[in-house]
Amino acid sequence: MTAPAFSEDDRHFMRVALSLSKRGLGNVWPNPAVGCVLVSSDGTIVGRGHTQPGGRPHAERVALDIAGDLARGATAYVTLEPCSHFGKTPPCAVGLIDAGVTRVVCALVDPDPRVSGRGHEMLRKAGIQADVGLFADDARRINEGFLSKVERGRPFVTLKLASTIDARSATSSGESQWITGQQARDEGHLMRATHDAILVGAQTVLADDPTLTCRLAGRSDQSPVRVILDRSGTVPVTTKLAQTASDVPTWLVTAEKNFTKLLEKFEKTSVKVIAARCTAGHLDLHDVLGKLAGEGLTRVLVESGGNLAAGLIKSGVVDRIVHFVAPSMIGADGKAMIADLGVDKLENAPQFKRSSVRSVGQDIAITYENKTD
Rank of each mutant, 00 (worst) to 15 (best):
P111L: 10
I165L: 11
F86H: 15
E121N: 04
A207S: 07
C36R: 09
A5S: 13
I198P: 04
R152P: 00
C278D: 10
N143M: 02
V39M: 06
P82V: 07
S172A: 09
R185T: 04
G35M: 08
M337H: 14
S246Q: 08
S84F: 08
N348E: 13
D9C: 01
S21I: 14
A336E: 10
S84K: 03
R231E: 06
A167L: 13
G311H: 00
I198T: 06
I330K: 12
L252V: 15
L229K: 06
V105P: 11
V157L: 08
D166R: 05
Q362C: 06
D196Y: 08
T211K: 13
P249V: 05
G290T: 11
R215Y: 09
Q183D: 07
Q129E: 10
T75E: 09
E121T: 14
G87V: 15
V343F: 04
D110E: 10
P91Y: 13
T79F: 14
S41E: 14
C106E: 12
P236T: 13
P82G: 04
R231G: 01
T2R: 03
L159A: 05
C106S: 13
Q203H: 04
R185C: 01
R192F: 04
T367R: 01
S148R: 01
G181V: 05
Q182P: 02
V150T: 07
S232V: 01
V28C: 00
C83K: 08
L241M: 06
D112G: 02
S148A: 12
G306V: 07
R320P: 00
K345Y: 11
K149H: 01
H58G: 15
R124L: 03
G47M: 02
V101E: 03
T171E: 13
A310V: 02
G296Q: 02
K268I: 05
P113D: 09
T372P: 00
G49Y: 13
D112N: 14
G233S: 03
E121D: 11
L308N: 05
R168H: 03
E60C: 11
G294F: 06
E175L: 13
L297I: 04
F86V: 15
S355R: 08
T279A: 11
P90G: 07
V237N: 07
L212T: 05
L308Y: 07
T298W: 02
F13Q: 06
E267R: 15
S246L: 03
C106M: 13
E151N: 08
A5Q: 15
E8T: 14
L80D: 03
S246A: 06
I165K: 05
K125V: 14
E60K: 12
P224Y: 02
T51A: 10
V34P: 09
E187N: 14
T279E: 10
Q351T: 15
M1T: 04
A74V: 15
A310Y: 07
V302T: 10
V132G: 01
K335N: 09
R72N: 09
M329V: 15
G68M: 06
C83I: 11
K265V: 08
P155M: 13
N27P: 14
D221W: 01
E303M: 06
T279N: 01
L20V: 05
P249K: 02
W178V: 07
I66N: 09
G316C: 05
Y368I: 02
